[in-house]
Design a protein around this nucleic acid. Structure first.
Lengths: 137, 137
DNA sequence: TATTTTTTGCACTAATGTTGCAATTAATTT
DNA sequence: AAATTAATTGCAACATTAGTGCAAAAAATA
């Protein structure tokens, strides 16, 4: 089993308390996390700024990815499968439950292909589905 | 041809300078607009708060819709077709050009259907494609 | 263990969004 | 068309969220 220090070292990052703890949080969380969630769940053990910088670093290193939302919040998530190897795949669908408000990565569901108009080139595609999740059904 | 006052009245809104001007901006803009863009383009003729409230109102009345983004900005857009009648369709794909940074509504491209895992119910789906647009090709 | 490099936390700054309330403007009524 | 009513606007104050420089602290390296 891969420990947090392993993941961090693998990405060429120094192993620090904040990084271990925040990575931990992602590993034990099913859904996506916002900056605020992380501050809450770490009991403000780290400075706000540290959390911002850690998230930034994790995104750069491909440990977590950002999820598009319509309100102006930024959500981050770790993929559950196949993402430890360094190259991150975030071509899966994200699900936002309108009842419990959780955001869940549907790693099994791949973003379907779309035919773009002439002269448009696709690089990346993201999909967010809103509805009711299995727990709130 | 439908004028701004027509659209406003149709939505049961009083016709005011700010609403006319902001709606105008959307009508003559191809892509999506952020709050900041509107402030710039109206030469700060209206108060920041008025712009916020106007956007809110337009969203509520279905004149414009919000576009999901991964950075923490909120983008608004008017659909080019079929959206004047009151019930707004925003099941189309949004395109963000990584070169010119514009966000474009691809009204012709409908969000494809996805098969969700068991016990998940879909209400809404949004799709954002990043790439190079026709102008930057 | 000593040195170098990186990361952290603090203080400050900036940007963004919200609310109450009086003044103004638009819509309605007579 | 003027008066009344209703809605919208702008200001001020406040709240929240995010970003930066720099010295102190911690981690990595030698």
């Amino acid at each position: 089993m891969k420990t947090q220090p392993d993941i961090l070292k693998q990405s060429g990052l120094s192993v620090t308390e904040s990084r271990k703890k925040i990575l931990d949080l992602f590993l034990e969380t099913d859904g996506a996390l916002a900056h605020a969630d992380i501050e809450k769940n770490t009991a403000s053990a780290f400075d706000r700024v540290t959390v911002y910088r850690t998230l930034q670093t994790f995104v750069e290193k491909g440990i977590i990815h950002q999820i598009p939302t319509t309100d102006n919040s930024v959500l981050y998530a770790l993929c559950r499968h196949n993402c430890e190897q360094g190259h991150h795949h975030d071509d899966h669908v994200h699900f936002i439950c309108s009842t419990c408000d959780k955001t869940i990565c549907l790693d099994e569901v791949t973003v379907p292909d779309v035919k773009l108009p002439k002269n448009f080139t696709k690089q990346l595609a993201a999909m967010v589905v809103t509805g009711v999740c299995e727990d709130c059904k």
